[in-house]
């Protein structure tokens, strides 16, 4: 989903910082903020070997579009790109990129923080964590 202000994608291929960076560039913007979530090798004391992301793609794109709209309308950013991986993702690979641009830095930092927090709270994407001795869906069990 792409407009001149938002670029929202769920991708099965490696995410590109350049694509997000180039999308948010704007001659009127002096503050760019990019958040990158990468796959780390441990969680809750256990060794993680890789992750597998599953998305309810249609709804996830809609929810991401709502987040992008809020970033623009309430935080005052000019452009926002949100790219999220699906499928198997290895250690150090990028799971998500959120990139925003604004006239000054404050709006960019705040909108970026808002967007990743909102994504983790309500966008229908699920992460399966693979450990040395098994795998499980993150957040599924008490």
């Amino acid at each position: 989903m792409k407009s001149n202000k938002t670029d929202i994608q769920i991708l099965s291929t490696p995410l590109s910082l350049d694509d997000c960076y180039n999308f948010i560039l704007d001659e009127s913007c002096g503050g760019l903020c990019l958040f990158v979530g990468t796959v780390r090798n441990h969680n809750k004391g256990k060794t993680v070997t890789h992750l597998d992301f599953e998305a309810y793609e249609g709804m996830a794109l809609k929810e991401l579009a709502k987040i992008a709209a809020t970033a623009i309308n309430e935080y005052g950013v000019k452009h926002i790109a949100i790219h999220h991986r699906q499928g198997a993702v290895g250690l150090t690979e990028k799971a998500v990129i959120i990139a925003v641009s604004s006239v000054h830095r404050k709006a960019a930092f705040e909108a970026c923080e808002f967007a990743i927090a909102a994504l983790k709270e309500r966008v229908p994407i699920w992460k399966k964590e693979f450990l040395l001795d098994g795998s499980h869906w993150v957040n599924a069990r008490p």
Binding site: G37, F53, A55, Y56, M59, A60, H84, A95, V96, I116, L119, K120, E121, R122, V123, P124, I125, W126, K127, W137, V138, N139, A140
Partner: peptide, 10 residues
């Protein structure tokens, strides 16, 4: 209609 377990993206 979809069942949405606790999400864990990002």
């Amino acid at each position: 209609i979809a069942i949405i377990p606790p999400v864990s993206g990002g």
